[in-house]
Design a protein around this nucleic acid. Structure first.
Lengths: 342, 342
DNA sequence: CTGTTAGCGCATTCAC
DNA sequence: GTGAATGCGCTAACAG
């Protein structure tokens, strides 16, 4: 069992004061460069590592960011987190990650834990059924910056990072229309969440622009889970006039729908064109390949952390609340191609 | 900006000593129950929250566990993490999670970060190409318990939690044989990793037991990525005698193979029976549903953390190294059913 | 059962 | 450019 080296040990070794060691290690400008590098090298030799707790206690900041996400099990989310981790590491911040499991209640618990852990900042993507932002008030009261990404809710003291979901929804729908679909069904998640509400808006815009009447009964709010495909096909079979297009709010569920459709004897895309959302690798692994929206997850993670940290280092306490909108992109694949040759 | 309440504030308020407050808050046995609850309630009223850094600095433990995983983007991994998080929360531990992105190098960096963060214990699932365990030595030298799960490497000072991959591989292969497959191809990942090496062993056992000669050229080591399916089919098309069964080491890649097979005109399961591994929800969302192995991820996460924490609280420094083997289960679905009626 | 005292390791005044 | 002194908030002796 090795002993921990402290700045005192280094100081003694070099016959200088601990204060100088501390300053040198923190690259303080008022320290001679030669002594700086001397201290750095002996620190390395002696196997010194900073004690983050002593440092945090003293500085009253933890160099830790909290992240609350609905779930980790999607390509999208893990990509976002990879981006966050990269930026955090570079700025020597740690990340504490937790999953709300799409539950408002768990999200509240998670927020509480993050608060008690005294994170310097909090990054959140909201759960399906989150109703309000009260559980984040303690952070704002203590001036701990709060940032929402992807699943956001507008708040006058928090930054949001999103893509233009209205536009993306519009693009998908327009594309389906351009491929000859006239009755497009939209399978989505909780409309409490901007991502779903906005995609729906885009869907409606595209219909209206094409002169297609909006039909409420073609929009289905689901949990986007693995049974949704089967349920959707059941609905379709009960319809007097079945749809000829399907816009599903994520790729996994879109695949579930495609699969159920094929099992029920519908041809994709001939009978029904299908499009998903997120550009999960899954979309290129199913037959037919899935038309979808590319979502810049890694970039979103990077920017989120970068923005939060710059806020932490920021000059003012002015909560410059802004919304950052990233660029998404329609990716056309076979599942929606009904016109061009295969 | 509110002021932080400390135990001194509570002590002053109640005219008692800070030590008593500290003891009461930590549920020390030698404190009167009435004063305990009095302290607890005023602490709540005053909005007290413990300062984990002061506490960590004093106690020389952080109540934080590190987790290094290859990737977060699978149902399996996020389930494991959910189980870990639950147990950690209950024992009031925090989790720091990082992804190695299947890279040995990144795993080393991650380990270093965890070490510098002074985690009390470390949970690891190894990257594809990890060669040795040297980067974990610093932990062992400092008596920080190390636990491997799923992707493990035997080490005389670390506990491992796994399923019986040999058996699972055997079960899958035997099942395929029982459905009439004679030439079974096995698509797997790096054989440096126990999970893949063991599944291969099980595969070989089953063949041998059925009196089928083992054919090296039917085993393909890949990255199990999204292009693997296409590549595999290409290989198949070049074979004089194509396989009639496919055992793929994870579900995502199995789906990629099924899809490529169908695109190339093979019927699943009639021409080729397919089986995957992990029981990802994906397996029930593709057509045909995928035969697979159910893997108790949540349970594995729970047990991993429970075991590590009990080690931390353990009486001795004796590194009682053990291997815990969890039960997996074959799940038969359409993709492999060639005999029974559909 | 409760109080007194001291120190965990660091960063920051204030000196010089 | 460097050193001495102090305290961040908590817990663990040691007393009583």
């Amino acid at each position: 069992m090795e002993k921990e080296i402290t700045i005192y040990d280094i100081a003694k070794q070099l016959n200088i004061s601990p204060a100088t060691v501390s300053r040198a290690l923190n690259d303080h400008p008022a320290i001679n460069n030669t002594t700086k590098s001397l201290i750095a090298s002996t620190a390395r030799e002696m196997g010194y590592r900073i004690n983050p707790f002593a440092s945090s206690l003293r500085k009253k900041r933890t160099n830790t960011l909290g992240v609350i996400v609905p779930r980790l099990n999607s390509y999208f989310m893990s990509t976002v987190l990879a981006g966050m981790e990269k930026e955090a590491n570079e700025a020597s911040y740690n990340l504490i990650i937790s999953q709300s499991m799409e539950s408002f209640k768990k999200e509240i618990t998670n927020a509480r834990t993050m608060f008690d852990s005294r994170v310097d900042g909090l990054l959140v993507s909201l759960a399906f059924d989150t109703e309000d932002l009260e559980h984040f008030e303690p952070f704002l009261k203590r001036n701990i910056p709060l940032l929402f990404f992807d699943r956001v809710m507008s708040h006058n003291q928090a930054t949001s990072i999103i893509i233009d979901n209205v536009r993306a929804g519009y693009e998908v729908t327009s594309h389906l229309i351009s491929q000859g679909s006239q009755r497009i069904m939209h399978i989505t998640g909780s409309l409490k969440r901007n991502v779903y509400a906005d995609r729906l808006k885009g869907y409606q815009q595209a219909l209206s622009e094409a002169g297609i009447a909006y039909d409420d009964s073609l929009v289905k709010v689901t949990d986007l889970g693995m049974d949704t495909g089967q349920w959707v096909v059941q609905q379709i079979q009960e319809m007097p006039l079945p749809p000829d297009g399907l816009f599903v709010a994520n790729d996994f569920c879109a695949v579930s729908c495609m699969s159920a459709l094929k099992r029920a004897g519908y041809a994709v895309p001939q009978d029904v064109a299908v499009a998903g959302f997120n550009n999960d690798p899954l979309s290129q692994v199913v037959e037919p390949n899935l038309t979808t929206i590319h979502y810049p997850g890694y970039e979103m993670g990077e920017i989120a952390v970068k923005s939060l940290i710059s806020h932490l280092n920021g000059v003012s306490t002015s909560h410059a609340t802004n919304t950052i909108i990233l660029r998404s992109e329609l990716i056309v694949r076979e599942s929606s191609l009904r016109l061009s040759s295969k």
